[in-house]
Amino acid sequence: MELLYFARIREDIGHSSEIISLPENVSNVESLIGFLRQKGQNYQTAFENEIIIRVAVNQAYVKFDHPLEDKDEVAFFPPMTGG
């Protein structure tokens, strides 16, 4: 699956995208965040506060209980501030 990071989350993690294989114990967005948090301090910082994390799967906004498949593109970003 392809992971995309934007704005503060991209800066905290240190890169804007990566490709991973869907880990066995990951079934939805919530558990993917849990998995990513184990990857290092940068990920832990990026995903520390769930209230300020928004998620899009295949370019559609979803909630944390949204199920995931290996072919999905998952984007993480903070609440939007355009306009």
Binding site: T81, G82, G83
Partner: peptide, 20 residues
């Protein structure tokens, strides 16, 4: 647009840069 369009502003100020 303010809440639903994926855009993010970062301000560069005299006290450093920060995400809005």
């Amino acid at each position: 647009l303010k809440t639903d369009a994926p855009f993010w502003k970062k301000e560069q100020t005299s006290h450093g840069a920060h995400w809005v």
